[in-house]
Simulated scan of single mutants.
Amino acid sequence: MSAQNSAGIQTLLDAEREASKIVQKAREYRTKRVKEARDEAKKEIEAYRAEKDAEFKKFEAEHTQGNKAAETEADKEAVTKIDEIKEAGKKSREKVVKDLLAAVFEINPTPHDS
Rank of each mutant, 00 (worst) to 15 (best):
K81P: 03
K81L: 10
E36V: 04
E55F: 01
A69E: 15
D99H: 01
R30T: 09
E94H: 05
T64D: 07
T80S: 15
G66M: 07
A70C: 06
K35T: 10
K95G: 00
A19K: 06
R27F: 12
K42G: 01
R93E: 15
T11S: 11
I85H: 02
K76R: 14
D83C: 01
R38K: 13
E73Q: 14
K42F: 05
A15W: 02
D83S: 13
V34H: 03
V104F: 05
V79E: 13
P111I: 05
A88L: 12
N108G: 02
T64G: 00
S92V: 09
K81M: 05
D83A: 12
K43W: 01
Q4K: 09
A15L: 10
V96D: 11
T31A: 13
G89R: 00
A19G: 07
L12W: 02
E16S: 10
A37N: 07
A47F: 04
I85K: 08
A37L: 10
K58P: 00
T64F: 09
E18N: 07
L100N: 04
V79K: 15
V97W: 03
I9M: 06
E62F: 02
V79R: 13
I85A: 13
A74P: 03
V97D: 03
R49P: 00
K42Y: 04
M1R: 12
K25I: 09
S114C: 08
T11P: 01
K32F: 07
K98Y: 02
V34Q: 08
Q10C: 00
V79A: 15
V23D: 12
H63L: 06
I82T: 12
N108M: 06
V96H: 04
K91W: 01
G66S: 10
I107N: 06
L100H: 05
I9G: 01
L12S: 01
V34L: 10
E46C: 07
A50V: 04
A50F: 02
V34C: 01
S92L: 09
N108D: 14
A74L: 08
A61H: 04
I22D: 05
K25R: 12
R93C: 08
I82W: 00
I82L: 14
R30N: 08
K81Y: 02
I45E: 11
A3M: 12
D53R: 12
K68F: 12
K81F: 00
I82V: 14
N5G: 09
A74E: 10
N5K: 13
T31L: 11
L12N: 02
D75E: 15
T110V: 13
T80W: 05
N108Q: 14
A3L: 14
K68M: 14
G66A: 08
A37Y: 04
E28Q: 09
E44F: 03
A15F: 02
K42I: 06
A78M: 10
F56I: 09
E71R: 13
A37C: 03
Q10N: 07
Y29K: 09
A78T: 10
K57Q: 10
E71H: 10
K32S: 12
E36Q: 10
A15M: 09
K86V: 14
A88H: 08
